[in-house]
Structures are given as structure tokens and as C-alpha cells.
Simulated assay, not measured.
Amino acid sequence: MIKLQQALYDWPTKSFEQSLKNELLALAPGILPLQQGVAQGGYVDDSDLQFTLLDKSATAHQIVVKVGVFFSEIIAGCSCGDDPVSEHVYCEISIHIDRQNAEAWFYLV
């Protein structure tokens, strides 16, 4: 299970956004559901992820955050001279953080 401990600790201070971004960047490749967000059937290049906080809210049990994610999609196999091709992609992810143990779940919006 993925934990976003620092983001939970910093909720609801002004440090929350930066803590969340730092923890998301530190995740192992493939953890975020970005492959579902590719537009042309390629592969996610998560070497240069960028996040934008779009919305945040909380209940007694969880923090819910919506983030925009910018990344590159590698499109291979088109038999072109410049194969593979890289395209910029944007998708949105909903992140649910348990307020008791910092466990996080990620959903493509």
C-alpha cells in the first residue's frame, strides 16, 4: 500500500501542496494510473512528471485531492524515421488519503 505520510501531516497547511507533489514524484514508476490516460496506445514516460493541484477537500475519514498530471507518451512501432515519437499528455487523477494511516488510493478521472 502507498502512504503519503508527509502530505497527511501537512494537511491543511500551505505546505500541503508541495508535500503532495514531492511524495508523488518520489513514487516508483508505474504506481500512478497514467497508462490508462495515454491517448494513442503508447507507453508512459514518467521521467518528467508535473503536477497541478486542481481541488482538495476532506471528510472525517479521508482527504480527497484532484490533480492534473502532465507527462509524455512514447509511441513506438509506426515505422517512421523518427520512431519512437514522444507526445505530451495530460490527465487528471483523484487521490484519496486515509486520515488515520496515510494510505492512498489513485483513480484516473
Results as ranks from 00 to 15, higher is better:
residue 2 I to T: 13
residue 11 W to T: 01
residue 74 I to F: 09
residue 7 A to H: 03
residue 24 L to K: 02
residue 16 F to E: 07
residue 22 N to H: 05
residue 96 H to R: 13
residue 58 A to N: 06
residue 22 N to Y: 05
residue 42 G to C: 05
residue 29 P to C: 07
residue 82 D to P: 06
residue 2 I to E: 10
residue 94 S to C: 10
residue 9 Y to S: 15
residue 41 G to W: 01
residue 91 C to P: 05
residue 106 F to Y: 07
residue 92 E to I: 02
residue 92 E to L: 02
residue 66 K to D: 12
residue 64 V to L: 12
residue 105 W to L: 15
residue 50 Q to E: 14
residue 62 Q to Y: 09
residue 79 S to L: 15
residue 96 H to M: 13
residue 104 A to G: 01
residue 6 Q to D: 10
residue 42 G to P: 03
residue 70 F to M: 11
residue 107 Y to A: 12
residue 77 G to R: 01
residue 26 A to P: 02
residue 84 P to Q: 00
residue 85 V to Y: 10
residue 9 Y to R: 15
residue 14 K to W: 11
residue 90 Y to E: 14
residue 73 E to R: 06
residue 27 L to Y: 06
residue 28 A to W: 08
residue 42 G to D: 03
residue 35 Q to A: 09
residue 90 Y to I: 13
residue 15 S to Q: 14
residue 74 I to P: 09
residue 32 L to V: 05
residue 81 G to P: 08
residue 77 G to E: 01
residue 50 Q to N: 13
residue 1 M to W: 14
residue 21 K to Y: 08
residue 87 E to R: 13
residue 73 E to L: 03
residue 35 Q to M: 09
residue 65 V to T: 06
residue 86 S to W: 11
residue 63 I to M: 00
residue 104 A to E: 02
residue 109 V to Q: 14
residue 97 I to K: 01
residue 59 T to Y: 01
residue 78 C to K: 15
residue 97 I to E: 04
residue 48 D to M: 07
residue 75 I to L: 14
residue 11 W to R: 00
residue 59 T to Q: 04
residue 14 K to M: 13
residue 109 V to D: 15
residue 25 L to C: 09
residue 106 F to D: 06
residue 98 D to I: 06
residue 5 Q to F: 10
residue 65 V to C: 03
residue 12 P to I: 04
residue 81 G to R: 06
residue 99 R to W: 03
residue 46 D to G: 11
residue 45 D to I: 00
residue 50 Q to F: 11
residue 25 L to I: 10
residue 69 V to H: 08
residue 32 L to G: 09
residue 1 M to P: 14
residue 38 V to N: 01
residue 31 I to D: 05
residue 107 Y to P: 05
residue 93 I to P: 02
residue 108 L to M: 05
residue 53 L to F: 00
residue 69 V to K: 08
residue 104 A to V: 05
residue 26 A to K: 06
residue 21 K to E: 08
residue 88 H to Q: 14
residue 66 K to C: 02
residue 78 C to T: 14
residue 106 F to T: 02
residue 51 F to V: 03
residue 6 Q to K: 14
residue 68 G to T: 07
residue 82 D to F: 11
residue 11 W to P: 02
residue 29 P to L: 04
